[in-house]
Design a protein around this nucleic acid. Structure first.
Length: 283
DNA sequence: TGGCAGGGGTTGA
DNA sequence: TCAACCCCTGCC
């Protein structure tokens, strides 16, 4: 199925640290992964054309998952005045989109993410699928294990998936959801800050991960996850002081600079600084 | 080949 | 505020 898109980069979007269930296929520009529990193959034919195969999904599903209905340039334009840095970052990364991950997989991925790099997190996602998920396509692909499945696993079995200390957190979170101590349906009716505090009741979920979940699963564009990358970027770009400012000050600054769309701004700044870093490394 | 540092974070004292 | 928690990678 051919899907027309705005100016878009599939690779940038799938490797920007939002989602961890996509792997590069054998053919160039081809990615195999999961949308709404359906295994599918996406190929970027051109910056404005995608080809989707291998699932019962329609183009609206793909567009919604990949955030193709958003125009980041238009959304963030009101914040460009007096903020040349943001304008440049968004212009250079305008092919990037904010995805919409399933909330449980997103939560589990980010619990697994602490002190891990993107390839490791992707590896963990694959391992958990292969060991505890249900098979689709006769063993070629596996669904992400439901929390009720994870809740029944021994911590030692999870540790054997190379989760380390994160095994206890993932198990604790799955069990809290399973026994009704945490109700994800409540999130939709909460303000972002309240939702962040609620998510932080889950073991292994602190402020950063709570904001990641709100941004990438609930698409709360006012969530602003601060990791070491974005903290460094904000420090370099927007603070004159030599010492790294505390997260409270970075949050305040992000509100002032990017308003209700600071999460989206974060995504583009993060990607832009990473691309620049790689460029410096390459040269 | 092996030792060491450091990495996209959270917890608990 | 800071050590502890695991595992992997890159570097020497």
């Amino acid at each position: 199925m051919l899907i027309k898109t705005p100016d878009f980069s599939l690779a940038d979007t799938l490797t920007a640290g939002q989602t961890f269930c996509w792997n590069l296929g054998e053919n160039e520009n081809t990615w195999n992964g999961w949308i709404q529990g359906n295994y599918c193959c996406l190929k970027q034919k051109s910056p404005t054309q995608l080809i989707m195969s291998g699932s019962g999904l329609n183009s609206d599903d793909i567009r919604a998952y990949l955030g193709l209905n958003d125009d980041p340039m238009a959304i963030l334009q009101p914040y460009f005045e007096g903020n040349q840095v943001l304008k440049e970052a968004v212009t250079k990364t305008r092919q990037l989109r904010c995805v919409q991950e399933p909330w449980w997989e997103c939560t589990a991925n980010f619990i697994c993410s602490s002190l891990k790099q993107i390839p490791h997190i992707r590896q963990l996602n694959t391992t958990l699928r292969e060991r505890f998920g249900d098979t689709q396509n006769e063993g070629i692909s596996y669904t992400y294990p439901h929390w009720s499945r994870i809740a029944r696993i021994d911590e030692e079995d999870l540790r054997r998936c190379r989760l380390g200390y994160r095994a206890k957190f993932l198990l604790g979170t799955a069990r809290m959801i399973e026994n009704g101590q945490f109700d994800p349906n409540r999130i939709s009716n909460m303000e972002t800050e309240e939702a962040s505090n609620y998510l932080q009741r889950l073991p292994g979920v602190g402020e950063k991960i709570a904001h990641c979940i709100l941004l990438y699963a609930w698409r709360r564009f006012d969530a602003f996850p601060i990791d070491v990358w974005i903290a460094r970027a904000m420090h370099t770009l927007y603070f004159k002081q030599k010492k790294m400012p505390p997260h409270s000050k970075i949050h305040l600054k992000s509100r002032r600079l990017f308003g209700a769309h600071r999460g989206l701004a974060q995504l583009h700044l993060f990607h832009w600084t990473r691309v620049q870093g790689n460029r410096h490394k390459a040269s």
